[in-house]
């Protein structure tokens, strides 16, 4: 019975093809350094899941943002755990992205035919940093407020377009409710969608070209 159900589903969904195409692939011999990319992907998944939980209680308005996080920390069952994981996972994710990039650099894996995989990777790094920057403001505490003030000021140093960029980021001349809602929208929709799309391309390219082998003397 079970095998019949499996067969019925497989005919329609194609598990076996998926298994052959995605999982049952030959690979060059790897080391533990090759796990950094998948570890980053794992942290991204953690961020999405814990982020959704936080989204249930978080209110992106200056009047309630701080209190809603206090409530998550003290009122919601295991809210402190979810927020703690989200916080630390963000930190580790940046660290792992950097380490992953260094690994790829030192093994020269960005060379033919994987040039595009690297470029997408750099965009992933920038988007991840953008997630960190926008997420930093959301607790609406002293540190986040003043750090964002400085960050948007730095963006204003761009020649010619600077003041416009600062005003666009802040939604006005000063940090306000508009800044918070802009950063919130970027943090929960714009950047995660960008990140997910880029991850999709990155993974497609990895499957297409295969994981790179460690260089030997003759390379």
């Amino acid at each position: 019975m079970a095998s019949k159900i499996y067969q019925w589903l497989d005919e329609r969904l194609g598990f076996d093809d998926l298994y052959k195409g995605l999982l049952d692939r030959p690979e060059p011999r790897g080391t533990w350094w090759n796990t950094l990319g998948s570890a980053t992907l794992f942290l991204f998944t953690i961020q999405v899941l814990t982020g959704i939980f936080l989204l249930v209680y978080y209110t992106p308005s200056p009047d309630h943002a701080y209190d809603s996080i206090q409530y998550i920390m003290n009122g919601v069952a295991f809210g402190w755990l979810i927020r703690g994981i989200h916080h630390w996972s963000a930190t580790l994710m940046v660290l792992l992205v950097f380490l992953h990039m260094l690994r790829v650099f030192f093994t020269a894996s960005y060379k033919f035919p994987r040039e595009l995989t690297w470029m997408i990777g750099v965009l992933l790094l920038l988007t991840t940093l953008g997630m960190g920057l926008t997420g930093y403001l959301l607790p609406w505490n002293q540190r986040s407020y003043f750090a964002t003030t400085v960050a948007t000021e730095i963006a204003g140093l761009v020649p010619w377009a600077g003041p416009f960029i600062t005003r666009t980021m802040r939604g006005g001349n000063d940090l306000s409710a508009l800044t918070l809602s802009r950063f919130f929208a970027a943090h929960v929709w714009l950047l995660p969608l960008t990140l997910a799309a880029l991850i999709g391309v990155h993974l497609y390219l990895i499957i297409r070209h295969g994981e790179s082998e460690y260089p030997t003397e003759e390379d």
């Binding site: 692939r25 060059p28 011999r29 796990t35 755990l81 580790l92 082998e213």
Partner: peptide, 28 residues
């Protein structure tokens, strides 16, 4: 290199999962 290599499943995935599990414990 592929001739002397390993299989994505289970060889690489096993290492990936182990690292992810370690990370999860570290996060908690």
């Amino acid at each position: 290199a592929l001739q002397h290599g390993e299989r994505f499943w289970p060889d690489s995935i096993y290492k990936d999962l182990l690292v992810s599990l370690g990370l999860f414990i570290l996060l908690v």
